[in-house]
Design a binder for these strands. Sequence first.
DNA 1: TCAAAAGTGTTTGCAATACACCCATGC
DNA 2: GCATGGGTGTATTGCAAACACTTTTGA
Lengths: 232, 232
Amino acid sequence: MNILKHISVDCAIFGFEGGELKLLLIKRDDEYIHNEWALPGGNIREDEGVNEAAQRILAEMSGVGDVYMDQVYVFGDPGRVKDRIVTVAFYALVNPAIYKLKPNIPGALEARWFELDKIPDVALDHKEIIETSLRKLKRRFKFEPVGYELLPEKFTLRDLQNLYEKIYGIELDNRNFRKKILGARLLIETDGQQKNVSHRPAKLYKFDRERYNAYKRKGINMDILPAWYNDF
Amino acid sequence: MNILKHISVDCAIFGFEGGELKLLLIKRDDEYIHNEWALPGGNIREDEGVNEAAQRILAEMSGVGDVYMDQVYVFGDPGRVKDRIVTVAFYALVNPAIYKLKPNIPGALEARWFELDKIPDVALDHKEIIETSLRKLKRRFKFEPVGYELLPEKFTLRDLQNLYEKIYGIELDNRNFRKKILGARLLIETDGQQKNVSHRPAKLYKFDRERYNAYKRKGINMDILPAWYNDF
DNA sequence: TCAAAAGTGTTTGCAATACACCCATGC
DNA sequence: GCATGGGTGTATTGCAAACACTTTTGA
């Protein structure tokens, strides 16, 4: 199957593991990138959509599909790559515990999760793509509760709070945080508990996807519009 | 100069005129569209960036460049057009009074501003592109004061309120609206007044672009994050 | 019994909302 | 003088923010 010349997709894949927000990078060695860390990416086939191409590429590396992905931006200046290539950037949210890296990815020497403040130099304009993706991720989290994409099925409120704190690099008041999260009624209390912790074990929660879907379009209170206006 | 095969740009151009929010459509007759209303669009040249291509195409129709434009989304499913073409959609905000339509645009039989609730059937998947663009426009206005792109240099507070009301299709309380707008200190009172109105003439204001640029990254109050967090 | 994190309520202040009347002008 | 939209102020209320102690468990 032919590919579309002059277009590619690149994916900023975020994961949350060990209390840290991480980004997946690949050490690539191909026509454009020589033994450098870079975002996973690739070409679009003639018979697949742009979004599907991104899903496929992610699946080829992690072995799993149906992942939360979102378009970030199109980078298309001439000169961004040796040949003239316009790339559509995506970001994806995955739980690294589930989405294990595949070994022996063709064209990739190595794959690794990097903590956000330890990202090495990357190829081409991928630094800019990463920064733009992170900005978009922050915005997303500001306006929509997507945290569960990054967490295991069951998690504690502290896990969720840590996630927010890592994404924004700030500390949150845990009373207010719990009030808001529980007040949104997006979590379902399970009968599980933390195990093997040397302190009071936390309750485990899971996301209420149904209620989440209802919330999806809610939007947030703004200066100009009345808060009840949610038609987005 | 060669063009990039398999990629195009399409522009949803919004204007505000006569108290109505309008969209510019072109009656196109070319390889893909036969005598149908459609968004202005075209190919990307090898030596120009994607964003520049969008600016150029807009300039070719209106004769004016340096317009507020923003990427909306990439539409790239196979089958959206006869051949395999991925299109990058943009929206632009222009003041129709300034950006006059050019006659005799190559490949375009006619160009016209349509009120949003009177948009005719459009070619290909342009209906979807228009809807997505409008959604993005609404979001933009919710979080950033870009109204002045659509208004003349000097305007009344009522003009601005009308603009918001048209975009969202709701009515706003004028006392609260004025309080917020003036409170944001984004407007500079000029010494001009409305003329020839058979009622108390309104003061004319202009935007304070400098202060606006400072506000640009402010972001809005959110549920999870403290309101003072603005690092976007 | 100590360490460590989980869990919990109240007060305060600000900002969004709702609401109604006088003002300036043209005709 | 009247019709028309411009322009203004206040009271209420709900929510975000700040804040500290008790509870539960493992070691």
